[in-house]
Amino acid sequence: MNAAATTQHTNCLRCGRKLTSIKSTATGYGPTCTRKVKAAAATHTASFKPALVAKAQELIEQGGIVPLRALRIFTVISSDGASTYKTAPQACTCPAGLKGRFVCYHRIAAHIVAAA
């Protein structure tokens, strides 16, 4: 992930509350939502490949996944930071998601955030 591609957030990406700490504004999630996302990542990712789960967690930590509609549809940043995709736990518009043979890490990130 490209660190320059992410932005500073003033509201939590999960619950919408105002973020006050520097760490929270950098990640986009407040401390309570961060704990919930980490707990969801630990419990809901057993069926996915560990390398993809790690990339999904990195995407979440860097604030590269932004909800569009009530934690069902998200905008995600590509790994090179040049483009964005729309994703949900069921589908993704990235090249790997369009082929549909494997679950991309964008979908895993959406699954984790939606489950939190």
Rank of each mutant, 00 (worst) to 15 (best):
A42N: 15
A42L: 14
T43M: 12
H44A: 14
T45W: 13
T45N: 15
A46L: 13
S47D: 08
S47C: 07
F48Y: 15
P50R: 13
P50C: 05
A51N: 08
L52T: 04
V53S: 04
A54Y: 08
A54H: 06
A54C: 00
A54P: 07
A54K: 12
K55S: 10
A56E: 01
A56F: 02
Q57V: 08
E58Q: 11
E58L: 09
I60P: 06
I60A: 00
I60E: 05
E61F: 07
Q62K: 03
Q62A: 06
Q62I: 00
Q62R: 13
G63D: 00
I65N: 03
I65E: 00
V66N: 08
P67I: 01
L68M: 05
L68V: 05
R69K: 07
A70I: 00
A70E: 09
A70G: 04
L71G: 01
L71D: 00
R72G: 04
R72M: 05
R72A: 03
R72N: 05
V76F: 01
I77R: 07
I77W: 01
S78G: 07
S79G: 02
S79W: 06
D80N: 12
D80S: 03
G81P: 06
A82M: 06
S83W: 09
S83A: 12
S83P: 02
T84A: 09
T84F: 06
T84N: 14
Y85Q: 04
K86C: 05
K86G: 07
T87K: 11
A88P: 04
Q90P: 08
Q90S: 12
A91P: 02
A91N: 11
C92V: 07
C92K: 10
T93G: 10
T93Q: 15
C94M: 11
C94K: 07
P95C: 10
P95I: 10
A96R: 13
A96G: 10
L98N: 09
K99M: 14
K99N: 15
G100K: 14
G100V: 08
R101P: 07
F102K: 14
F102Q: 11
F102P: 06
V103P: 11
V103H: 10
C104I: 10
H106S: 14
H106M: 14
